[in-house]
Structures are given as structure tokens and as C-alpha cells.
């Protein structure tokens, strides 16, 4: 069988991903998660001494905490099947990736299982976040030193 013509057959018959529907679901799910984040940040600003800028750190930590509960009770994967990127892109999705791997690999022990595998899924985010931050800052620093731009 010719692979190319076969791929055409597959494209014709296999069900398509419902892109528009998925996008709408992602929009709503992601929107709700971010709104919850916004409300939590108001709580931190109103009741504690956090400013708009500094409230984002405890807010993110709280969101990850909520993500831990939802992951542990098996709810986050259902949100994930519904919301797709809507639940994967917010920091709760990052938390879910770390926490689900930690729970999953508990069976191999806390060092070789949890410790080694925790960042199995979320690792690339930190690696490439850090590396791109390095590159971007390096370029900017060079440009500033050359006097092309200023900070």
C-alpha cells in the first residue's frame, strides 16, 4: 500500500479534531481559571499587604495548590479532556503536570520515583523558559552596552 495515498484515505475518513469547538472550550476554561486568579489576587491585595505587582506570586502559588487538590481527587484530568489548552496553558496546568507525575511515580519511591520524574512533563517549560530568558537578556545587554537601545 502506498503510504501517501493511504494518508489521504485516513484524512478523508478519520474524524477531525473539532478545532472551533475545542477553541471555544479552551477560551471558556482558560478564561474562568484566569478570572479565579484575578479574584484571588484581589483577596491578597485587600486582606494582606500585597500590591498589584506582588500579589501575583501568592496568587500563582494558590492556583497551584488548587491544582494539587483537583489533580489528587482526579478532577483535573476531566477538566483537561474538556478544556484542552484552556486547562493546560494556565499555571494550574503546569502544576497538574508536575503533581500528576509526582503521584504517578510514587510507586518507585520518593527519590527515584517522585524526585526523578516530577519534571518529566513540565521540565521543558523551565529549561526553555530559562534558556530563552538568558538569550533575550544577553542580546538586550549587548545592545544596551553598544548604545543602540536603553533599558
Amino acid at each position: 500500500m502506498d503510504p501517501n495515498s493511504y494518508q489521504q484515505t485516513v484524512d478523508e475518513i478519520a474524524p477531525k479534531r473539532p478545532v472551533l469547538k475545542n477553541c471555544l472550550k479552551a477560551f471558556v476554561t482558560g478564561g474562568i481559571i484566569c478570572s479565579v486568579g484575578q479574584l484571588i489576587s484581589y483577596v491578597y491585595m485587600y486582606f494582606f499587604s500585597f500590591t498589584e505587582r506582588t500579589a501575583s506570586n501568592p496568587t500563582v502559588a494558590t492556583m497551584v495548590f488548587i491544582s494539587m487538590l483537583l489533580t489528587g481527587f482526579g478532577i483535573y484530568k476531566k477538566i483537561g479532556q474538556f478544556g484542552g489548552a484552556g486547562s493546560a496553558v494556565p499555571v494550574t496546568g503546569f502544576g497538574n503536570a508536575v503533581i500528576s507525575a509526582a503521584i504517578e511515580h510514587k510507586s518507585e519511591g520518593f527519590i527515584l520515583g517522585v524526585g526523578v520524574n516530577m519534571f518529566k512533563l513540565a521540565g521543558p517549560v523551565i529549561v526553555y523558559g530559562t534558556f530563552s530568558a538568558f538569550v533575550v537578556t544577553l542580546i538586550k545587554t549587548i545592545l544596551v552596552k553598544m548604545g543602540v537601545i536603553s533599558w
Binding site: C23, F27, C34, G37, A85, A88, V89, F94, V125
Partner: peptide
Amino acid sequence: TAFIVGGLICVVGQLLFDVAKLTPAHTLS
């Protein structure tokens, strides 16, 4: 605003999933 903007960023992620066929790890990176 948080709802709309956050939602739109997630739509970008969803398009990377569904149209560009990237894995979650690729998309988030």
C-alpha cells in the same frame, strides 16, 4: 479583561495543539 485575555492565550495554545499538532510539552515550551 482577565477572562478574555487569559482565554485568548489559551485559544492560541489550543490552535497549537489542534492545527499545528504539537504535543502539550512543545506547546507550553
